[in-house]
Amino acid sequence: MLPSQALRALAETGAVAADAPLAAGQIQPASLDLRLGRRAWRVRASFLAGAGRSVADRLSDFAMHEMSLEPGAVLETGCVYVVELMERLALPADVSGAANAKSSTGRLDVFTRVIADRGVEFDRVPQGYAGPLYAEISPRTFSVLARAGDRLTQLRLRRGAAGLDDAEHAAIHAALGLVDGEALIDGGVGFSVDLSAQAAGAMSGVVGWKARRHSALIDLGRLDAYDPLDFWDPVRPGRAGEVILDPGAFYILVSRESVHVPPDCAAEMAPYMAVAGEFRVHYAGFFDPGFGHGPAGGAGSRAVLEVRCHEAPFALEHGQTVGRLVYERMAERPEILYGRDIGSTYQAQGLRLSKHFRAA
């Protein structure tokens, strides 16, 4: 995984280029924030470019109308949009990319993924890719006001395969601690849900938040601005300590374990499906080097879980395993770490909504 200094070097050589100079804070310890460009299209269906075709060519088949994001535009719940991104790539032959929604995007239940020309997978940029990037955006619960320059997605670049096997996960956990307590290691490090009345950072008795449908518009540029109770209902456990998830509803919960991403590693929260397909945890999953790292001000950081239930109501219980963190090695230690020194929003977090909402 390429660290911040390597990302900056790629920008200086033109391998990562943009319509406007990179903004302050856009380069993170192991990722690059991608900015919305000025043009967006409402499309009738999600699509991939496909082998030998460009996104621009496919837009002629799917676009319903074009809109400008320079003054700002409302992206409505239940609609699908494609937005050109400011950044474009001319990657070295041995460098590939993977994209994901930023944490704040996922916590607003705004589903987004990156599309590249000739792409046959979402959120994947092949080795040596040269061309533009686009974001597909579909708000699920809240309609949002978006503008050119807003950052909804992020890109990681890597050389080769950086993933760790179970033995390597176990060795790093033994040496540095990847979660507090004993680690369940199987294709990554397992974590469980905290439904206790003492969930980290929670107000009295609240273990999560359930999104309200048909709420007001959220301006993506307004931070620490909205009252949570205008958009969310507090979730409290039942008598047996369980939470019944309603089909189709969107929840913010928190992990029971504190999480640690050492400076020489990055991590990704793998989406988790229950065996019967009842619910999915976490749509946005990059964890940068330094998250939960004590010297970077992160001791005790929890993982926030974005949860949606599907076919049937599901009883979620305290301590139930709901997902796993998959770690990867950094090519070298980043010159910056996630945390207090760069003003990272979610360091040392407990149960936490997106940064658009005031602390409950």
Rank of each mutant, 00 (worst) to 15 (best):
H169M: 05
E168G: 01
L69I: 03
D57W: 12
A249K: 03
S68P: 01
M86V: 05
C265Y: 00
R44V: 10
F231S: 01
V95C: 10
S46M: 14
I336N: 14
L108E: 09
E70Y: 02
L223H: 00
A162P: 04
R124M: 04
T321N: 08
V125N: 11
D117K: 15
G72I: 04
I172R: 13
K355T: 04
V189W: 01
S103G: 07
L59M: 09
A24F: 10
P132L: 01
C265I: 02
G78S: 14
S103D: 11
Y346Q: 05
R113L: 07
G292W: 03
P295I: 01
K210A: 11
A90Y: 03
S255Q: 08
V144F: 00
M86P: 01
L10P: 01
R302V: 07
D94W: 04
I244V: 13
W209G: 01
A171F: 11
P334Y: 06
V243N: 14
D94G: 02
V74Q: 13
P313T: 08
G52Q: 04
H260P: 02
G241H: 12
A175I: 06
Q347M: 04
E311D: 11
L195H: 08
Q198L: 14
V307A: 03
Q127C: 12
G187T: 10
I27F: 06
G298M: 01
R124I: 02
K210I: 05
T105N: 14
G350C: 10
L223T: 00
H169D: 07
D233A: 11
V144A: 00
D230Y: 02
G14W: 00
L34F: 07
E335W: 03
G319I: 02
G128N: 07
T105K: 12
P71C: 09
P3Q: 07
D194H: 01
S354E: 00
F287Y: 09
A359Y: 15
V243R: 12
F62I: 05
L59K: 03
A30K: 09
G294C: 05
H356W: 04
V206K: 08
G285T: 13
A73I: 05
M64E: 15
A130C: 14
L253R: 11
A276H: 05
V43A: 10
L337V: 00
L48C: 14
H318G: 09
E278V: 06
V74I: 12
G131A: 09
P228L: 09
F250R: 12
S301A: 15
E257A: 06
F47A: 13
Q5V: 03
R35A: 13
V304R: 00
G208L: 10
D246G: 12
R140Q: 11
R236Y: 06
M269V: 15
L220R: 04
R156N: 01
